[in-house]
Nucleic acid binder design. Structure first.
Lengths: 245, 245
DNA sequence: GGATTGAATATTGTATTCAAAAATCACTAA
DNA sequence: TTAGTGATTTTTGAATACAATATTCAATCC
């Protein structure tokens, strides 16, 4: 019997993926209005599947829909990033615990392969590669937890993505120099089957990033005592337009 | 300035809500195929907003989309319900902790108003009302936690809904007689601002339901040693058809 | 009688169309 | 100039149209 549901790929799925990566890769920037006509022409599809994809992204909070006005790429607040870390602290802690319990030898080997050739120097290229590896690592960790529902939530809900929405160091909150040993310790704890240690290390990892983020937020607040940002996009221009003279 | 995004209510939102409640209320039963033409006529809208709503429900896992075949009301496995409880154990534990920290006097009063006139007798009516109150209570608890992201996830991801997908006692895993004192203790812990106790009680509450569920699953497995259920709906009839002789 | 084939029918996925709302622009008056 | 106002253009939200695919069912063959 052939697998159902995988043979055909609906257009809206393709559009969804394409659009999502455009947002994640910052080709569409926070605040940008999504011009449906333009994008659908660009993708060579009608507005119907695009609309579908946009609704999906709205549910994921990657875009914001304003009725009768359109869709805008959403901007995450530091508070939201903080919440995402708080959630990841417990959720990935749980995943790490379960991973340590059910991990197989083959998976352990693959896990140990992460961050083997990490470049901890200052180079921008190195940071970028580390950030990518970081993402892959955490995704794999969740996968190892064997928690379908959790997997789904973290993936579809973009908790991971949100976490990288800090504006420095490719979205990393702390420098690889600091996080690399933590990652390695966590890897070892899971690979060698130590649930308690794994959970503790995973939680510590996020707790520390959270503290760092909090510290930055305090600093920022101290610098700009009261400058409330506009919460809704109003008369936002697309980033594609020519900058004024 | 007028509130953006709340004045207009898109059709697909209405259809979404309507459809969702039809599924939750079992007017559409697990396995049922969703006939788009029929439903859209019933709702008096075209298939476009219905399609949108269906895609949303697909993301929430309340319906399953099979390309070129249609949408089916999804059936949750006991395993999924178990996972939902496992997640709720930690997530609502966290919410209870935070609620106990930030709760206001007014909220505490409202919280103490839950389950005041609970009917713990055997009557079906009583059970139904208790189950509804149970849902409202847990939703309020999450709200009290003040965790926007968590709120969203639990709501949109139907973790709560999934939890009530057990086929006995209106979806309740344990009898009110057993859970009522737990609810009351939890309420008191939160209302009187005891974070540690609140988290402990919340987690215990779910852990016990989880154990009960596990026990039932074991029993069931013992009764029917090997009868693998079909994982995909195949030639599923709508529940509207006349039952055969 | 039961499996197989293929035309007829139904349903889906997507494009197109259209009315209503919002944005933009040109024009007038202070 | 600049604020306000009405006409024009864009854009959205939803209905309809249509081609591609799936399902059904009757006729045929073994």
């Amino acid at each position: 019997m052939r697998k159902l549901g995988t043979r055909h790929e609906n257009l809206d799925r393709k559009v969804y993926r394409e659009l999502k990566s455009m947002i994640v890769d910052r080709k569409l920037k926070p605040g940008d209005k999504i011009l449906q006509e333009k994008i659908s022409q660009e993708f060579g599809v009608s507005r119907t599947p695009l609309m579908c994809a946009l609704k999906k992204l709205e549910q994921e909070k990657l875009v914001q829909a304003i009725p009768r006005r359109g869709f805008y790429v959403r901007r995450f607040t530091k508070e939201e990033v903080l919440e995402a870390f708080e959630l990841r602290e417990i959720l990935e802690g749980l995943a790490a615990r379960r991973a340590a319990i059910i991990i197989t030898a083959i998976q352990a080997e693959r896990l140990r392969g992460f961050f083997t050739d990490a470049d901890v120097s200052e180079s921008g290229q190195g940071i970028k590669r580390y950030a990518d590896e970081d993402r892959r690592f955490h995704n794999f960790l969740i996968e190892l937890g064997g928690f379908d529902l959790l997997n789904d939530i973290l993936e579809n809900y973009n908790i991971i993505t949100v976490s990288y929405r800090v504006d420095v160091m490719e979205g990393l909150v702390r420098h690889p120099r600091e996080t690399l040993p933590e990652h390695r310790a966590l890897i070892e704890a899971i690979a060698s089957g130590k649930p308690d240690l794994a959970e503790k290390l995973a939680r510590q990892h996020f707790a520390r990033s959270r503290q760092q983020l909090l510290k930055e937020m305090e600093l920022e607040k101290a610098r700009r005592p009261s400058k409330p940002a506009a919460s809704h996009p109003r008369a936002v221009r697309t980033s594609q337009q020519e900058p004024g003279p």
